[in-house]
Design a protein around this nucleic acid. Sequence first.
DNA 1: ACGTACACCTA
DNA 2: GTAGGTGTACGTC
Length: 995
Amino acid sequence: MKKGDHLFLVDGSGFIFRAFHALPPLTRKSDGLPVGAVSGFCNMLWKLLTDARDTSVGVTPTHLAVIFDYSSQTFRKDLYPEYKANRSAPPEDLVPQFGLIREATRAFNLPCIETEGFEADDIIATYARAAEAIGADVTIVSSDKDLMQLVTANVHMYDSMKDKQIGIPDVIEKWGVPPEKMIDLQALTGDSTDNVPGVPGIGPKTAAQLLEEFGDLDTLLSRAEEIKQNKRRENIIASRELVQISRQLVTLRTDVPLQLDLDALVLEPQDGPKLIGFLKTMQFTTLTRRVADATGAAAADVEPAEVAVEWGAAAHGPDLDAGEGGDAAAAGKASAPARDGAAGADGEGMRPSELAAARLAAFKDVPVDRSIYQTVRDIETLKGWIAAAREAGLVAFDTESTSLDPMQAELAGVSLALAGDAASPAPGDIRACYIPLGHKSGGDDLFSDGLKLVDGQVPMDEALALLKELLEDPSVLKVAQNLKYDYLLMKRYGIDTAPFDDTMLISYVLEAGIGSHGMDALSERWLGHTPIAFKEVAGSGKAQVTFDRVEIAKATEYAAEDADVTLRLWLVLKPQLAERGLVRVYERLERPLVPVLARMEERGVTVDRQILSRLSGELAQKAAAFEEDIYELAGERFNIGSPKQLGDILFGKMGLSGGSKTKSGQWSTSASVLEDLAAGGEPLPRKIVDWRQLTKLKSTYTDALPTYVHPETKRVHTSYSLASTTTGRLSSSEPNLQNIPVRTAEGRKIRTAFISTPGHKLLSADYSQIELRVLAHVADIPQLRQAFADNIDIHAMTASEMFGVPVEGMPSEVRRRAKAINFGIIYGISAFGLANQLAIERSEASDYIKKYFERFPGIRDYMDATKAFAREHGYVETIFGRRAHYAEIRSSNPSVRAFNERAAINAPIQGSAADVIRRAMVKIEPALKAAGLDDRARMLLQVHDELIFEVEDEAVDAVTPLVVEVMESAAMPAISMKVPLKVDARAAHNWDEAH
DNA sequence: ACGTACACCTA
DNA sequence: GTAGGTGTACGTC
């Protein structure tokens, strides 16, 4: 740098706050990411770089740097601990923009400067004085009064938002003192926003007047006695020392160690494509065009840049691995590229919530109208729809098929819905169509099975080829409701849908615990619209037909409406993720799991029908033997499986005492009641309990499981639900493979029927005590942390702490009680529950709990804090930011309230553990692939804290440690757990031996 | 044919 | 005491 050069110093941090509050809010059109300050920043920088000469600055910079605050821990905090202590957290909408503005700066090819321990103002002061010393001119792009002390003949400030240059006369005009007196003035007045103390009763006017009279602050303080006004004099004398501190606080340092010297700030030429890539990602269409024009870069050829968006979650949740691989591909694409020429009324300058409201308002003018849906009957029309969808970059789709089971279903048709450009969707302009592909008729004739394809349908293979182009197009966001179903169905037709959004999962992330997330419920809740019921279209009961037999006109109304409603829901729900800081939960913990689970479901697991058949026979025989004894003891034959009849026999006919009633007034015949009766010497109850166990195993497992074996794959394909628990756990159904017996020897035999393919093993890897580890982490309990760090028996340690019994030689009963208490804690303990569990008196259980809290006071603190949080917010959060809602926690009904409190205490623990294994599941396939093991090991099942793989025999030794490592480190890098996670893994030919 | 209560399987 | 799903019985429509 030399004399005559012109250095621009941009106060990045100041700009962010100013732009955020001064500019109208602006959100990225496709997803509602708040970008107002980023937009203001980019526009301002571009203007400075290209035509600063035309602004009130009147010169073009030769050097430029953007300066940011690094942290709030600066030397001023040491000087005066209360400095900036009144600052509250930045607004949620602003937080994601900090990182984006740094990204923007780099995209502009400009130095981005921050130094630990110093504020941006100090760095600016240091550069300004250094440049001035060389003889260069300086323009500080800021309007912050704290920087006005730097103004000289050669150093100006520039308020970019008002396009106003600030020189010495301007400072005098505004503050009544020249720049060099600004420090004295600020010391006297203090600064309420930075919590800098001042003299009470002295504002800028009085301060300027006093400085005018006495010349400077030191003189004023030494001659304060001369001040005539009593109150003012007393205040200044009383504040003398504080004013000295204030002066130090407001004085900018000019000796900050500089990472880059002045020469390094020289303006480099713009890298057009790099900048355009960033601007496209932000969807700043106007500026993109301007930059393209100015740099000669072809904007159309530039891909949107991958920008790690640190969305709102950072404000109060962990950074869920921004920049980590994860769902980046889907996320980057799902933010949809800005399209040239995209302009629109929708979303201009709106907060996400306003965007959602505006879209809802648009729907009011254009309600769902089933009469406008188009039936696509020829290939040209289909091509038209697909071209429009690809042009738009956004399409909602839904598949219609012959079965609720995506492994059995045959495709009947596909519906699409469009609402204009992805970057600027037009909610009031939704159109939708149905493409029938496999509708059939005939076959009613008893003497022929001649089902014939209905005329006027696009040939299935041609349509699929076109749909594949659309569904696999990386620049088109596909939106569906419960996409896992459609994903799996389309995958069976050779189509790998991506990128995508799922309205059901968005709703789940927003409102787990509030209502259900099915399409009909969401449509009622958000759109006030009731879609046609499936049974209206396909009938119900005996008269129900598969969708491919539905008349096409009727099918069009139903199917196209589903796509229409799905798109409307997306338009309303998606912006709310950003609004509530839940984007990363959605993008890291929900969306990427869809294809992972779809593949697991598609693979299925082999269940040996012969083993089950043999077991079933054994169980039938044993149960029959019990039946004879039971009838004998009861004195009559009755339906043992009927609790009502059984209750009448036991407590009526036989007159046994010690029974209890269920909430409907029936005699309870639960296992615990029967156990009590058996302990009293009655022979019948014991036999009932045993009979029940046998018949339960038979009906629910050995008889039911074989009916789920797929006719072609010969494997059992469960279905996982991503959105049916409040806590974030998955659930499994048809069949439920998450409740296969394990507790009793008899039950475990069921597990021997789950076997590996020849040449393979089943590998089971399960987290050890993950929920107690999570508890130790969130409640930060030293003894628990230590115990887990040392890998010692946690229940024995608890017993030892509570009862003072050494771990060595501890009676098993003592440990059992401690174990029950540990579990009780996780479940939001109550004396009633613990007493029930341990079959002890409630008062004794109460004493245990009291003792536990004395030994682990941090647990009680955690529970109280969780309850208070839930009461205040109506939800609780996992360590990864997932929310579980408990609306009834404020209920006036004490038992309802207590139930919600227990659930709210449990949810962060159970939910955090669920998040951990979700993360592991997302990471496992890429990890296997990276190790070249992806075609030798396949993840099949998840059972809350356990993953089951099918692994080639020769690959077991390589896969096992890899799986363990991925699972144990699954919380990283988003969360660094205070306790290690431990995973046990074993491989065997069947699930029983592997577990 | 469908919904609810009860019982019982899992983590 | 938390979170689920399924089978049977038995009521209603």
